[in-house]
């Protein structure tokens, strides 16, 4: 799977607000296919808010945002969002969860099958176990497998390495490099080093 070569994400003078409080303003950046952006900053600086704005889940307080080359109106329709909540149903098995999201989030093409995706995150031993029985790190790995079952060019990752052990963090870094190599874009909010060649956008502290 290779994404459109003219893929690019533009943010122009974005301002972020949450609950009526201005968190950041004047954010401008352009990311082309194959580029990653790490969003850093102290707690409450607006990292998660920026990702939710990029995912079209929140409207920016002002400014413009566009994703060219993906054939969608809003960037969110071509994005995978991995937030703090994993969007997995505890009563369903890992395979059932992934089968559902691959149907729901596909943009026409299907990526890896749920079993292949679970193998990529070293979870192939537990496809038929209800997700509620998995540990926090294992649930995280199933959630990361979701990024692989429905190809979408823009990955929005909010603290993707939370709860992952060292081996899983290495695997996540490899998956992210593969995504960049196939022409995708990654925006990740993180405190940790993700082992990725990336630009950094530092959001300021609030007094």
């Amino acid at each position: 799977m290779v994404f459109h070569q003219d893929l690019s994400l533009h943010a122009h003078e974005l301002a972020l607000a949450r609950g009526g409080r201005r968190l950041a303003q004047g954010l401008s950046f352009t990311l082309k296919g194959g580029e990653a952006l790490l969003v850093t900053g102290p707690n409450g600086a607006g990292k998660s808010t920026l990702l939710r704005v990029l995912a079209s889940l929140l409207a920016p307080a002002s400014g413009r945002l566009s994703l060219d080359g993906a054939g969608v109106e809003a960037p969110g329709l071509a994005a995978h969002y991995l937030g703090h909540a994993e969007a997995l149903k505890g009563a369903l098995t890992a395979r059932e969860n992934l089968e559902f999201w691959s149907e729901m989030l596909t943009m026409g093409d299907f990526g890896l099958s749920p079993d292949e995706a679970l193998a990529r995150v070293a979870m192939s031993h537990a496809p038929d176990l209800p997700v509620s029985y998995l540990s926090a790190g294992q649930r995280r790995r199933v959630a990361i497998a979701r990024l692989l079952v429905a190809p979408r060019p823009l990955w929005l990752l909010d603290e993707p390495a939370t709860a992952l052990d060292a081996a899983s963090q290495t695997r996540l870094a490899a998956l992210m490099k593969d995504h960049l190599a196939s022409g995708g874009i990654i925006v990740a909010a993180t405190h940790a080093d993700l082992g990725l060649p990336a630009r950094e956008l530092r959001l300021g502290a609030k007094p």
Partner: peptide
């Protein structure tokens, strides 16, 4: 809403 599925359903093509 609690487990984050609603966010992803909003981002789906449907």
């Amino acid at each position: 809403h609690e487990d984050g599925s609603l966010d992803l359903l909003e981002m789906a093509d449907t």
